[in-house]
Structure formats: C-alpha cells, structure tokens
C-alpha cells in the first residue's frame, strides 16, 4: 500500500496481439514488481484463458474475467466484485490489469472512483501497446484503439521489426498527435524498466485536449467503369501522408490489378479474384474527412 493508503494499479491496454501478455511477463521481472505482492487481473475478449495461461506462474494472485470487454456494463458487476476482492481481501502492494483491446480505459478510472471501491485503488500508470503492423489498419474501424492511445500515460510501439522505418516514423507522428505522452519503440516488448517506472498517471480523458484528436476514417469504393490512372495517382499524391492504407482491386482499363499502399508505397500485382466490381478497394485516411478521401480516390 502506498503512503496515502490506496493500492497502485498499472493498466495495460492494446489491441489483441499487440503484446500485452509478453509485456506483463517482462514487467513481472523488473525490480519495481519482482519483490512485491502483486495481484494480476487479466481479461481478453474471446480468447478466454489463453492470456491467463501464458502469464508465468509466481508469487502473485491471478484473477481472470471471462466475459467480453472489460469494463463494459455487462461485466462491470464482475469487475467490481473482483476489484473489491483484490482491494479488501488480497490487499496486494500493486495491481496489474491487462485489459481487452476493446475496453475503454476511462471506464476503469470511473470504477476506481466509484463508492464500491472506497478509494482503495488508484491508477499508477496506464500503458498502451500499439502493434506497429496493425494500428493503422484497425484504427478506422475500432475507435477504442485510438481512445486507448489517447488515454495512456505511456505508449509502447511494439513489433517495430515488422514495418520499415518510413512507416514507423509516420506511425510515431500519428501517435504523438493523438497523445504527447512518452513513446518507446520496441520489437518484443523489450522496454527498459526505467521507462516504465518513470511513468505517472494523469487523467487524459478530462480536459487535456480541448478538441478531439484527428481520427482514422475508412472508405469503401466500388465501381464498374475503369478508373483513370492519372487522376487516381494524382489523388494519392494530393492526400500524401493523409492516406494511411489502401488495398483492393482497381481496373485502370486493362483489367483488375491488386493495388496496395503500405508504408507510403503503392504496389501492384495481379488480382487474385474478382468477387465484386472490377474496382473494389478500401482506403484508410488520417485527419481527412470521408468525402475528400472518397472524391480524391474515385
């Protein structure tokens, strides 16, 4: 317990597969945690028990929540019950919470402040893992991915070995715009303990940013008539860094080709199959509205 009597809680967020469990196992080895009495609260949407089983055994109390998104109203009762058990019965030195990629970290703060927990738990730091290879693909579809970054006290960009330097630089620029919190780039959650220990919590969901951060949007474009290559290329050039991803078939007049934009590079290869119109692709933009994205690419 800390000086003020509340138990510090570390929150790990990030999309499924970002490396939260690997990070958790690493954290269990760092001096801040190694000799402490810890309680671990683990939840992942769907793959129940998998993350829990991957956490190495040790001198800690482990709790698993087996239903949906942590902090969703459906699981709130279980979450409160488990947190109360941790706070009033286990009374560990610290708690580490591995949240699902679908959870809203601001809900946890609200829970900590609820009467049910009587102020026994407080957020020490909220760390968000970003998978360098998937973030720009999912951000347009899963707002929670962006919000988890927005509310973090420290952001670990993981799996950096899976993307090139240009894409990584672009990703870091995007993440910094969402949240100016400390960022650390790594490949296998290999983070120095000092970086982790140097994080402290500030409420980022209430007032740090006066305007919502730029967000990712997606458009799905389908057309039967061929696409003018020059206009398309010009559109891509105009969008520049605002075009994060593009993938699908485009018919430039000579039959469909598979076009993909990743890391700022546009590549073409033969179309694998034609399930829909000759031109059917998805594009993800950043800090651009859907209409502009649509009109520049179609």
């Amino acid at each position: 317990m800390s000086e003020c009597g509340s138990i510090p809680a570390w929150l790990l967020t990030g999309y499924l597969g970002a490396g939260k469990t690997t990070l958790l196992n690493r954290l269990l080895e760092i001096p801040s945690f190694k000799h402490k009495r810890l309680a671990l609260l683990i939840n992942e949407f769907g793959d129940i028990g998998v993350d829990g089983a991957l956490v190495r055994t040790g001198e800690w109390s482990k709790f698993e929540l087996n239903k949906g998104s942590l902090f969703c109203a459906c699981i709130k009762a279980d979450t409160v019950k488990t947190l109360r058990q941790i706070a009033f019965e286990v009374k560990p030195d610290a708690v580490i919470i591995e949240a699902t990629g679908l959870s809203e970290s601001s809900d946890l703060e609200a829970l900590f402040e609820s009467a049910a927990l009587e102020g026994r738990l407080r957020t020490q730091a909220n760390v968000c893992l970003v998978d360098a290879s998937t973030f720009t693909r999912i951000a347009a579809f899963l707002p929670a991915a962006t919000r988890q970054v927005q509310q973090a006290d420290g952001i670990l960009i993981n799996k950096c070995d899976l993307v090139d330097q240009a894409e990584l630089a672009r990703l870091e620029a995007i993440i910094s715009r969402i949240n100016p919190a400390p960022i650390y780039q790594t490949s296998h959650c290999d983070v120095p303990s000092a970086w982790f220990e140097g994080l402290w919590h500030s409420c980022r969901c209430c007032g740090m940013s006066q305007s919502p951060p730029a967000g990712a949007v997606s458009v799905s474009i389908e057309r039967v008539a061929p696409v003018d290559r020059a206009k398309f290329t010009s559109g891509v050039r105009t969008l520049g860094d605002k075009l994060l991803r593009l993938k699908g078939n485009i018919d430039f007049g000579d039959g469909s080709v598979m076009v993909e934009l990743a890391g700022g590079r546009l590549t073409e290869r033969p179309a694998a199959s034609l399930s829909r119109a000759p031109t059917a692709f998805v594009a993800i933009g950043w800090d651009v509205d859907r209409q502009t994205l649509m009109s520049l690419l179609s």
Binding site: G101, R137, S218, G248
Partner: peptide
C-alpha cells in the same frame, strides 16, 4: 470470427 473482424474490414472487406 473474433477481433480479427476489425483487421479483415480492411484486409478482406468482401
């Protein structure tokens, strides 16, 4: 499908 659904929205919309 699991949470892969969000990745597939981009990777394999059809």
């Amino acid at each position: 499908l699991g949470t892969d659904i969000f990745l597939k929205m981009f990777d394999d919309e059809p």
